[in-house]
């Protein structure tokens, strides 16, 4: 389902609130500490702005806001995961990012109806890893702009 060629998927594991999420390691460009973010006006609220990522202007999404969780102050643990997807480079703000895990393909299950606080739409599947539940994200949906939230533009 994730990677048909191998039966092991490497996942970067990160944390939002008390939940664990995973994105495939091959979509991740780098993991950065929080740095100066320039706000971009007239965009959706979860778009925190842009950063200078080694000379490339990169947009940043606050995943907590994207998933409608309560906002949190940035801490020492806060990280920006830079993902490439479909020609876009986007940074995702997460509470912490530490692990890389190998998931056997058959441990990944389709998402249940309701899980944690994240809408099923963003989820590709769930997997068990060392007594914790890993939610695997569907980056395409996470990065998709055509959301219910209407764009607040200035006329």
């Amino acid at each position: 389902m994730l990677e048909t060629t191998s039966n092991q998927s490497k996942m970067i594991v990160f944390q939002l609130k008390d939940e664990y999420y995973g994105v495939p390691v091959d979509t991740v460009g780098s993991i950065e500490r929080v740095q100066q973010i320039t706000r971009v006006p007239n965009t959706q609220s979860f778009i925190k702005g842009v950063i200078n990522l080694r000379g490339v202007v990169t947009p940043i999404i606050d995943l907590r806001e994207r998933f409608q969780m309560d906002a949190a102050e940035f801490t020492d643990q806060t990280r920006i995961i830079i993902v490439h997807f479909d020609g876009k480079d986007v940074g995702l703000i997460v509470d912490s990012a530490k692990d890389v895990v190998d998931l056997p393909e058959d441990s990944i299950e389709p998402p249940p109806e309701v899980i944690g606080s994240v809408e099923v739409d963003y989820i590709r599947g769930v997997a068990k890893d060392n007594n914790r539940l890993l939610i695997l994200l569907n980056l395409e949906k996470v990065l998709s702009m055509d959301e219910k939230e209407s764009l607040s533009t200035v006329d």
């Binding site: 971009v40 006006p41 007239n42 200078n52 490339v56 202007v57 947009p59 876009k88 990065l143 200035v154």
Partner: peptide, 18 residues
């Protein structure tokens, strides 16, 4: 610099610079 593929049409912003 452009704002990247993700932020294509932002009102009244034509790009960015460092």
């Amino acid at each position: 610099k452009n704002l990247g593929q993700y932020l294509k049409d932002v009102f009244a912003i034509s790009g960015a610079t460092i």
